[in-house]
Amino acid sequence: MENTRRNRILLLLSVLFVLTAVFGFVLGSAQMDISTLFAALLQKEGYETQSLILYSLRLPRLFAGTLAGIGLSVSGALLQSITGNELASPNILGINAGAGFCMIALLSFFPQAVHLSPVVCFVGAFATALLILAVGNRLPRPKTGILLAGVAVTAVFNAGISLVSLLDTDVLAAYRFFSVGGLDGTNGISSLFLPAIMIFGSLIASLVLASRADALSLGDLHAASLGIRPARLRAVCLALAAASAAAVVSFAGLLGFVGLIVPHLARKTAGQPLRLHLPVCALGGAVLVCLSDLIGRLVIAPAELPVGILMALAGAPFYFVVLFRRSRDAVL
């Protein structure tokens, strides 16, 4: 049955995740072997340096990667479901552009308040989502309306970003790392608690609303026929998607493609209903981001390739594959 298939995929992903985590701890500029790893985990005497590396660097990084993976892929899954469009993602919907604009404005006009950047990012992303919702939900065809509003809003905020960078040529250096997206800016595990609450909260709420969101994907008339208030549910799902993505932006910057690729693959393997592919999204996203981070740390060691660049390299061809497949199916 479909549940068995999903569970098998989840098992496989769990194994991949553990392997990625172990390799992530063990490899890098400071190599460890397995016995050292266990000693460091248990914080045994004589392994203080390794413990420090593990607990202050690698573990937080793994946690950050997991959160980013879950947050972005759940956000993408929700957005693709409610818009009925498999190219929807937090980027396309302008959530990232809104956060980016607030971030670059902060860096340029209030550089002394740079410690507020997580809050600013979150507010920017969430406010953008609300703007898109307010405009898109009111249009006669909300499913397309939200996408169009997202495209429009992205354009506006990208223009804003360009304007700020033209007025202040120094800000680009600081903004650059944010705009690519990566896990190297994480400031310890405690800074990840609030995003974690948002991201796991969104995941749980999405699982509860999974079948309702599926009904919504059939269109407003069908959803209403099934006893759902379409506009209200759309607003809730969009808010969950926004909260999830915004939380990730606040510590990982504008990490693209995860919210596009992972839901797509999850749907193709586990099935169309959200209750089947959401868990796969969450775990798959975590694996993807953590694995990409690991590769990024190894490929040009001791320098690091941010996750965002790896995702762009993998993601851009992915768009073409999706479009190519769509055009091929359309011929039928």
Binding site: G84, D214, A215, R267, G271, Q272, P273
Partner: peptide, 14 residues
């Protein structure tokens, strides 16, 4: 939609 008939029928119980 990419949902199957069985999945649609299940949605009917929503």
């Amino acid at each position: 939609t990419a949902l199957t008939t069985r999945q649609l029928a299940t949605l009917g119980r929503e």
